[in-house]
Simulated scan of single mutants.
Amino acid sequence: MRTRHAGAATLAALTALTLAACGGGEVGGGGEETGSGSDSGGDSIKIGIKYDQPGLGYQDGSEYTGFDVDVATYVADKLGYSADQIEWVEAPSANRETMLQTGQVDMIFATYSITDERKEQVAFAGPYFIAGQDLLVAEDNTDITGPEELEGKNLCSVTGSTSAQRIKDEYAEGVQLVERPGYAECVTALTAGQVDAVTTDDIILAGLAAQPANQGKVKVVGNPFSEENYGVGLPQDNDRCEDINTAIQEMIDDGSWEKAVTSNTEGTGYTPNADLNPPKPDACA
């Protein structure tokens, strides 16, 4: 009798589970996708960004802000992922290729310049912005208008960066190079009068200048002397490149791209190089 009762209980439980499964779709609304894109969104998407670049990719507690974040959020939406389905992942420069190759992220928006060397390891969509190496100087500095004027002056860049060395090699052999762990430390040195200029990509400098503590104290020279095509890093076997390029073009066409640039560099006087921007996203071609 105990065996018969156990069997009956099991049958009843299975019946209840079957009925619940049949009716669950109606109660929960089925498997409806979120986001406005036509692509299948799935549960979430992992996007790599910088956490320490104000105005581009910056983490403040649970908040993520910056131009890269804005572009990534727009693109994700067009792919079918709402903002709360995005999992932000820190993507340091040295780790970006590995993170894509090992599936730690699905894509990367992190001032990631498209180069032939990198394309041997990963794929790119975009570009979504074309930056150029420039200089950040004190607001009242009228002497430094380009890299040639740095002869005999102190120039700051981050440890391991090639930006400052490029100026020494190509423009001002007598420039004195100063290294700091991060660009925020370089700006602190600039406002304290310890260095005459800071160098890296212009939009990174603009993001730093836009910080409340720096506004009115520093400015971007506005004379870029290189061309850096920021792309969306993807695994080589991806099937999203064309869709991402379409989304970037839509962002440009509907004005959201310009709004994102302006809101993240407000108060700095910075404007993107009009000869290069807005870019034409054609990296998949």
Rank of each mutant, 00 (worst) to 15 (best):
D143V: 10
S113C: 09
E173I: 01
A189N: 12
A125I: 01
N95V: 11
A138V: 10
Q101P: 06
T102I: 09
K153H: 08
E170R: 14
F124H: 02
G132K: 03
Q104E: 12
G160I: 02
C156E: 05
T162S: 14
I108Y: 01
N154Y: 13
Q176N: 15
G146Y: 01
V187R: 00
Q101N: 13
M107I: 11
L177K: 02
L150T: 06
Q165G: 09
E179V: 02
E139F: 07
S163R: 07
D116F: 08
V158L: 03
V122T: 11
I167L: 04
A94E: 14
I167E: 00
G160A: 07
V122D: 01
D106C: 10
A94S: 15
V105A: 06
Y183C: 01
C186V: 02
G132T: 05
V178L: 05
G132V: 04
T159F: 03
F124K: 00
Q133K: 15
E120N: 13
L155R: 03
T145F: 05
E151T: 08
E149G: 03
E120H: 05
Y183V: 08
L135M: 10
Y183Q: 09
G103K: 11
G126Q: 01
R118S: 09
S163M: 04
Y128G: 06
P127A: 06
V158T: 14
I167F: 00
T159W: 01
A172N: 11
A125R: 03
G182E: 11
G146K: 01
T115Y: 10
L100A: 08
D106P: 05
I108F: 03
Y112V: 07
S93I: 13
N141S: 12
Y112K: 09
K168D: 06
S163D: 13
V175A: 13
R118V: 09
Q101A: 13
V105G: 03
T162W: 04
K153N: 08
N141D: 15
I108E: 00
A110Y: 00
E173N: 11
Q133D: 15
S93W: 05
P127G: 06
T142G: 11
E149F: 02
C186T: 05
Y112W: 14
I114A: 01
T111A: 15
S113H: 13
V158P: 03
D134S: 15
V175D: 02
E151R: 15
F109V: 11
I114C: 02
L150H: 08
E148N: 14
D116G: 06
T102E: 09
G160C: 05
A94V: 14
F124Q: 00
Q121W: 05
P147H: 07
